[in-house]
Amino acid sequence: MPVYDRGYTHWQPSDRRSYPAWWVIARRGIVQPWKTKGMLTLLLILLVASWVPAIVKGGIVYFKLKAGDMVDLVGGSWTSIEPEGFLNYLDKQHFFVFVIMAIVGAGLVATDRRDNGLSLYFSRPLGLRSYVLGKTLILLFYYALVTFVPALALCIFAYLIAPDAVGIDLLLLTPLRLLVFCALTGTSMSLVLLAFSCLGKRSIFIMVWWTVMVTGTKTLGAIAGALNKGALQLLDFMGQYDNAGTFIFGADATLEVSRFLSLAVVLGWTGLAIWVLRSRIKPVEVVA
């Protein structure tokens, strides 16, 4: 019988697999930006551009390994295939991280708040953790696309052309370091951006706050560095992640402040973000 003759019928559950709510939220959030032409174009441009440094570095690494001393001309840790070279590479990806997360993440919670979507979500059998996990995974996915994935591709490329001696490191340890660093950094940054997103109802304002947060603190950190005011470098939001990440990559500190302090700052930001998310994401908004 066609559906329009059937009226309302009760659902008979099938044996098909159903997925947890966080997975459903993440999948939808990852796919959604590709459905509008403007966003699709923007994301493609960004993704292609974010891979250019990896391609350039891959080329330099190739010549360095094949042509030896000739590439001393383009020396520096950025071209290194040592762990700190990869950390340096990730540091240079900050711009793409900042932009792609702003575009994808600013409205993730703000739009739901604006359209009373939270009420819909929390009328379903899901809790705050599932909701935040789903939204965080969306940001992590895009974060990984501009950091972990090109870095891993570089790693594999370097392994394929590197001498046997460094092979194991490139095949096992460096990818593991990249994975741990990107997972922790990406999660923390995603939570902070989500916390920003749940403070407002309009994506554009969240983008502005995020821009001020990232570029403003970067500028302050740079000024502090130039003035040899090491402690003030703690204000550099993204810089702390790299400085703390030197633990994982076994590299020297990238800032003039202690790596422990940077780690504490990162943990502080993450804790604050979680507190904001817990207190702001509610199905009911109370206007006092």
Binding site: P13, S18, A21
Partner: peptide, 13 residues
Amino acid sequence: AYLGELSGMPARD
């Protein structure tokens, strides 16, 4: 369909 999935339904259902 999205809200159905969030209620625990399989995607096709």
